[in-house]
Design a protein around this nucleic acid. Structure first.
Lengths: 109, 109
DNA sequence: CCAACTATTCAGTGTTACTATGTACTAGTA
DNA sequence: TACTAGTACATAGTAACACTGAATAGTTGG
């Protein structure tokens, strides 16, 4: 993978993180670790944190500071109503793109 | 759609154009028009031309100048061996991302 | 005390799509 | 002639986003 994936993640990583948060509230370190276990081995720490701050500023998530047993306090993010609506939009956009690509892939064989 | 799609196209538009060229040789104006007819209504002219120049410099396509009946000469692009290999890689990367997202979508229901 | 793990932040970089504009050729038309 | 519209390509500047690399801070174990 590598560079192609990096470029492809632009726009989709945001949806991925929102989808994770739709499942359950989570904090940055946890999300990053989860992604790494699921094939996104090269995801950079900083990337996820920057993304979380971005979606927080856009009002898509609520934040709560929770003390950790080990290490500094965690910032736990949870999807709010606006976030849920935005995620809906994301899935529509993704479906559209996905269909176009599937069509192209089949057309070439 | 709009902004979400714009970000998602980063990384995928390149693959889309390569896949089109895998079907048959084409020139910029033609590709842009084709994309617009297939749902990508907001694709900017300049975007496709810039992309074509980029993949040409990377050696993924061969170029031939062909006179047009109406208007300036066309730059007809065709996928070469390197381009075909790169497209293979693209499909692998896309498949990976696609599977991850499909899993996430199902997991949330 | 120092290393390792947990947890977050941020300045700087590269890539990419978009905006806006300009160039150039042809055909039709007033 | 002059002007519009359609065809065809190019490019400078901007915005958004993921990555690099480094810093900070708390806890635990050797």
């Amino acid at each position: 993978m590598g560079k192609q994936l990096t470029e492809m993640l632009k726009g989709t990583l945001e949806g991925i993180v929102l989808a994770i948060l739709a499942g359950k509230a989570a904090y940055g370190y946890e999300i990053t670790a989860g992604l790494r276990e699921n094939g996104f081995t090269d995801i950079a720490e900083g990337t996820v944190y920057a993304l979380l701050i971005r979606i927080e500023h856009r009002g898509l998530v609520d934040v709560e500071k929770v003390p950790s047993e080990k290490g500094p306090p965690r910032k736990v993010y949870s999807l709010n109503t606006a976030g849920r609506e935005y995620l809906e939009e994301f899935w529509k956009t993704w479906s559209f793109l996905s269909e176009q690509l599937e069509r192209l892939r089949e057309g070439d064989e």
